[in-house]
Design a protein around this nucleic acid. Structure first.
Lengths: 345, 345
DNA sequence: TTTGATAATGAGCACGTTAACATCCGGCTG
DNA sequence: CAGCCGGATGTTAACGTGCTCATTATCAAA
């Protein structure tokens, strides 16, 4: 029933001019009705709305955009969309977009190698977007000298500040600072750190947060263990730690800080397989709080990033009028469960 | 250095007309160079390219679109982007899009309640998209009578066929048919099924696949157990199953088919906590193959959907010229690991 | 040289919308 | 009743591009 009249003009949907003709008014009046301008008689408005309904009119965005309006859309360039953190950030961005009735145009940069921000920016600006968010989870080769496209506000998801763009990220460094202090406060002056892969920026900042915090507390850092984010790599490191614990001695670790939850899970499995108890023998903390619903009886003490907050801030910075350039680090929250024991006194 | 000249005309980037003026040619010649038309002298082309470079020219999208060209973008309307399967599908769509140099414009439909396809379609068609893909993972109230927007090819991600739109989905029904037969062939004529939540369409098809297959094999189906996709709900059901096994009797289950991997994980944990061995006492299979890297020593026999394939097909259907309407069910692959034991003979 | 053919280039229009300006009309004041 | 005011409505121009058609330049053949 509805929709039968819409097949006019070889597949194109009706224009404002046709609505105007049907309603017996001018295009401008139709425009006013569509945009909710105040100065239209109720009678006229009704007539126009009826005509719009009859023709199935949807405003053509290109005309409006061409005239100088907004596309009501922002661009998002992602390097690897499946990565857990990216997904949550995407969700935050989309939620903010929904609240503003914006769409998100996503471009994924392919391949295994890091991409130049200039390439991403160039590809994106050809699309109808009002602003853009560039995700950088590996070091872009042109980060320092990157110049954003004129007229399009550009936000970079990065821990590093940038001279020309607002940057936003979860405070990766602060997260490990917080967790390290948390463990120290619970009496764990001998801890092990299981890092993520070397080429990950997040991983680097997490490691630095851990190392610096120990330094500030004048505690020697044991050699770092290197994982690759996967539970299996965590398991392998957990086996080494278990051996250390079972060997005993003054350097025996009492806690493990894993750079993500999956590796923490692997560490716990390895420790328990070796006959050790978590947290009675060894305390373990992870980062991300990514296990919700995924494993039974999730009891991992971990750290939750406010990724929705990151997404929201990124979105707002991308569409904001303010041209100020900031470097925003969004703080995270400790999620205390039951894999850490207080061993003071 | 580069980019300094771009700040002309109050923030707008240069137009083809300005490039033409600088190069001393007409707009049309610029257009030809941009679009790679053949009939331009090499000398002219070079001059134009130099001018483009100098002004930082990017073709204005709206102008081209208004004139009637392609947007090189498809719309994707998602109900809940975080759901594991949706994400993988998104990835498949984006990969296909990248291969065609398309962008994907994503709109997320909010809230907890299912949305009408008409609403999604209406919101999407206001955007610059050449086609659209609507994700339906709960039953849309207007599925039957939905009429797609004229002139925009519309694909629905759904197991149900639709009279006016091509529909595509992983073969949820067939997946459980395959797994059930697999268990039967290994001698497990007494199995339990742990279903997903009732309001999920996938869950309903998975259940039907299991039930019908048992029926065709003339095997009585034990009462279904209802979970909610989470590992904890799987654990709870696993406890019940463990109790049944320990009680013994002719109806003792020898295998469990869980409607997703997380619940399977919970079932295994509960069985092992009860002192039972997987697969020596009970075999367990899941669906999704979603545990990669997430848990240590993943050994779950499960089923992998070709979600990238689904995304690819959906994308191609959305931009395809063919106006034929199909209902495509993409088959899945068994991933044999070590949680199923052959108990024949 | 002239003619015709072919390739390169230019001019003009159309796409759908909205901001700015112009006009119209009813009612009110002086 | 003239003049004016203000709200409703109409008119015009402009946004940047690509298609169609017209024009010009180039070159070979007559």
């Amino acid at each position: 029933m509805e929709g039968m009249d819409q097949q006019t003009r070889n597949g194109r949907s009706a224009s404002a001019a046709e609505v105007a003709a049907l309603a017996g008014v001018s295009r401008q009046t139709v425009s006013r009705v569509v945009n909710g301008m105040p100065n239209v008689t109720e009678k006229t408005r009704k007539r126009v709305l009826a005509a719009m309904e009859e023709l199935g009119f949807r405003p053509n965005f290109a005309g409006a955009a061409l005239r100088g309006g907004s596309y009501r859309s922002i661009g998002l360039c992602m390097y690897n969309i499946t990565r857990v953190g990216n997904l949550a950030t995407l969700e935050g961005i989309m939620q903010a977009a929904r609240e503003h009735d914006f769409a998100v145009t996503v471009i994924e940069m392919g391949g295994d190698k890091p991409y130049a921000l200039a390439d991403a920016s160039r590809r994106m600006v050809e699309r109808p977007v009002d602003g853009m968010i560039l995700n950088m989870n590996r070091m872009a080769p042109d980060f320092e000298e990157f110049v954003p496209q004129p007229g399009v506000r550009t936000v970079i998801l990065s821990m590093y500040a940038h001279p020309r763009c607002t940057t936003i990220d979860s405070d990766q460094y602060g997260s490990c600072e917080l967790l390290t202090n948390y463990l120290l406060e619970h009496g764990h002056s001998n801890m092990r750190f299981v890092a993520g892969p070397e080429n990950s920026i997040s991983s680097r900042f997490r490691e630095a947060g851990w190392r610096d915090t120990l330094g500030r507390a004048h505690v020697d850092a044991a050699p770092m263990l290197r994982g690759d984010w996967s539970a299996d790599s965590g398991y392998a490191m957990g086996e080494r730690i278990a051996a250390e614990v079972l060997a005993g001695g003054s350097q025996t670790p009492t806690a493990v800080l894993a750079a993500n939850d999956q590796m923490a899970l692997g560490v716990i499995a390895a420790l328990e397989n070796a006959g050790l108890s978590v947290p009675d023998d060894v305390s373990v903390v992870g980062i991300d709080d990514a296990l919700e619903g995924l494993v039974p009886h999730n009891r991992l003490t971990t750290l939750r990033f406010d990724l929705r907050g990151v997404g929201k801030l990124a979105f707002e910075a991308a569409i904001g009028e303010s041209s100020s350039i900031e470097a925003i680090h969004v703080p995270s929250t400790l999620v205390e469960r039951s894999t850490v024991r207080d061993i003071r006194g």
